[in-house]
């Protein structure tokens, strides 16, 4: 156990955390502002990744593929909002869950139909490949640093958008009292469409960023969606600040747990038992964390509770 290892794992935790943030920012806004449980958010992640893969195959450019992921995911988001989601705001959560679950199946099967069941693999652009010496013996993958940077910039953008702009005021107001702000002359349905598209675009970008170093396949969004729900529950529903903090905490707890728990157990028992028990415990850690947060603060860090 060295200092360098800890720093590198912490960076891994941040990278994972920022990716979760891109996913959960949209989810928490949609949940908080519109009161909608959107299970199909993982599908936008997948759509982003697949559109990046398609554009990258056609044009060979990583940057265009990132742009494509934003554009296509937001278009998909806007269409879904206008055609389907709009009818669900006044329904109860069970209807929303059923309808958005149906969307998952619809999107997964259509993507399977267009792209096939075999995973696609993207290449990291030359400028971001390899690793960077940060200080001393600490090296870190340039691409993962790039993900951290993109996550950080988008977090700043979202804080600015929500906190400092007119639009942000409307969003925050909508969170508190939907009817009042429409009575004040704000076109609430346009605001909802915009928010939904924004959330989808962020999820799509996360999919493209992660798909580039992992793989692009049908159903890739759902495991991330589960984690994103954990994040927004811990952070407090509707709060960007909460989602930001909870993402980083979940990312770091999961990453550090995956190597620290087996390492601690190894002093108690032989390596292979320690590894198998350790990885089992490590994969439960974030859910344990969620349970603790829910016991201590049922509304999450910055949540106001659902009414």
């Amino acid at each position: 156990m060295t200092f360098e290892l800890c720093v590198e794992q912490l960076l891994n935790g941040f990278q994972f955390g920022f990716m979760l943030f891109l996913m959960s920012a949209g989810l928490t806004l949609i949940f908080g502002v519109m009161g909608l449980i959107n299970l199909a958010h993982g599908s936008f992640y997948m759509i982003g990744a697949f559109s990046a893969a398609a554009v990258s195959a056609a044009l060979g450019s990583f940057w265009f593929s990132l742009l494509a992921s934003l554009i296509f995911a937001s278009i998909a988001g806007v269409i879904v909002e206008i055609v389907i989601i709009r009818r669900l705001y006044d329904r109860d959560h069970l209807d929303q869950v059923l309808a958005t679950f149906a969307l998952i199946l619809l999107f997964s099967e259509s993507v399977r139909w267009i792209f096939g069941a075999y995973p696609l693999y993207l290449d990291v652009p030359d400028i971001l490949s390899g690793s960077l010496q940060i200080i001393g013996g600490i090296y870190y993958s340039k691409y993962r640093l790039f993900i951290i940077l993109v996550g950080l910039l988008l977090a700043i953008f979202l804080f600015f958008l929500i906190g400092k702009t007119n639009l942000g005021v409307q969003i925050r107001a909508g969170q508190h009292d939907r009817e009042m702000i429409s009575a004040l002359g704000v076109d609430i349905s346009k605001l909802y469409t915009f928010l939904f598209g924004l959330g989808a675009a962020l999820a799509g970008l996360a999919g493209a960023l992660v798909g580039t170093i992992q793989s692009v396949e049908v159903g890739m969004g759902e495991p991330v969606l589960i984690l994103a729900f954990v994040v927004i529950v811990i952070g407090g529903i509707g709060s960007i600040k909460g989602a930001f903090m909870a993402s980083l905490i979940v990312g770091c707890v999961d990453t550090m747990g995956r190597f620290l728990v087996p390492w601690i157990l190894m002093s108690l028992t032989d390596p292979s038992t320690a590894m198998s028990i350790g990885s089992a415990i490590a994969s439960m850690l974030i859910y344990v964390l969620m349970a603790i947060v829910l016991i201590v603060k049922p509304t999450g860090f910055f949540g106001k509770g659902l009414t």
Binding site: E8, N12, F16, Q214
Partner: peptide, 8 residues
């Protein structure tokens, strides 16, 4: 899918 922890 992600092996950053193991690679470190």
């Amino acid at each position: 899918k992600d092996y950053s922890v193991e690679i470190a």
